[in-house]
Design a binder for these strands. Structure first.
Lengths: 230, 230
DNA sequence: TCACGCTATATTGAATACAATATTTGGAGA
DNA sequence: TCTCCAAATATTGTATTCAATATAGCGTGA
């Protein structure tokens, strides 16, 4: 068999299963039994087990010894904490980026931000979401600290399942783009406190918009961890 | 076969191999081939592989796909990154503590800081180190965000091996206590930016003092984790 | 009817077997 | 002697098999 890249089956499983969790194919609380997963992805249990452990270490799934794995479900309090932590990490990266980004990094960030304008204007939620990730990742990289970047992006992907509809809120796209603009401007101006503040505000607003949605259809118990999907 | 506890073989391997790395049975850079480890610990390759992946996720070993695992050797650059990340996390917690600590938390922090004065004055390095951990932990807790606290304390403990001699530098104790004083004052005054700055400065100074020591010995096997004393 | 315990089944943990890739070693040719 | 290539070897990745534990279902007795 020919591998298309040099990743191992387990590597790809980590991506695939995360994707399926993130895009909702598996909901929080769902059981992830090894045999079904192996079957679903056409591999044996061995790489599935490896992938599950790795996902566990990133917080996306819970594995209970001898009792299997489930998609991690989070209480509202815990979720708020995670959002808060992410906001702080993002703000920290933005501050460091403002201080230390190279001229080329600054130029690329500026260009990339500009390139997102059409997506926001056209209401292309999917395209904007993808570009949004790139935007934030550029700022992680600009902090020039691999560990902070890793922590921040880990938090972001862990929260992804709970942010699925974030850009569906009416008017959210242009507002997000504006907030990106404030962050970008502060970074380009090397204004560290402003970059920190702008990013903190941006991420907190996204969170708020999430909460509105959650309250909107959550009404009964929040859907954060109900095994039955919405 | 009877298990003495409900941990799995892989669980115990994680502890055993970490211990062997920390106490120097395996030195940074050493290859960890699965067969030898399996043989050494009397198990098969399967749990060994699982343990290696987990150790990798905690940063203790490096696994290169299809090329085996080695004991992670932290380069000076990586170490600096880790220190930088820790400083940022601590500063963030201090900022949040300044904003959100309850009156009781503030009072306890103030009292605890005062209680450290004699330790600093008497040059009790060991006592001061223990109290120092408590001081910082109080601030993590004061941030009222369990995740941030977890990240910060994880970084702190991961760096502990490299900071063992930090309070041996002449005059470091009283200076540390002074810096704690600045942090405490800012938190009590609910001055968030000042708390952030004071903590960043404090941790960075500790790092500097470490670097002075580190320049003493090269990157040959550092005493990265001699289990003796704190 | 309910509680309890036992058996049957399902699922995970570990060991072994097999496949694929990386590394080493030896030799051929310049 | 040195370089390069190829076969041999070693080591990791994956599949399969076996073992141990957890869960579910059933029956029995009070």
């Amino acid at each position: 068999m020919v591998l298309l890249d040099d990743r191992t089956r387990a590597d790809r499983l980590v991506s695939d299963v995360s994707a399926d969790i993130i895009n909702g194919a598996f909901a929080p609380g769902d059981r992830l039994d090894e045999l079904s997963l192996a079957d679903r992805y056409g591999v044996s249990r061995t790489p599935v087990r490896e992938a599950l452990r790795r996902l566990a270490s990133s917080g996306l799934v819970d594995v209970r010894p001898r009792r299997g794995a489930v998609v991690a479900s989070i209480t509202p309090a815990k979720l708020a904490e995670l959002f808060g932590a992410m906001a702080e990490m993002e703000a920290t990266c933005a501050r460091l980026a403002a201080i230390g980004m190279t001229p080329m990094e600054r130029r690329r960030l500026e260009e990339f931000h500009a390139s997102m304008r059409p997506l926001a204007a056209d209401g292309d939620a999917e395209g904007f979401a993808a570009a949004n990730l790139t935007f934030h990742t550029q700022i992680y990289a600009g902090a020039h600290n691999g560990h902070l970047a890793e922590i921040a992006s880990g938090l972001r992907s862990r929260l992804m399942p709970y942010r699925r509809a974030q850009f569906r809120t009416p008017g959210r796209l242009p507002r997000s783009h504006e907030e990106h603009g404030a962050v970008t401007a502060a970074i380009l101006a090397a204004d560290a406190p402003a970059a920190h503040a702008a990013m903190l505000r941006h991420v907190s607003l996204v969170e708020e918009s999430f909460e509105q949605l959650a309250n909107g259809y959550g009404d009964r118990k929040q859907d954060a961890g109900s095994p039955d999907r919405a």
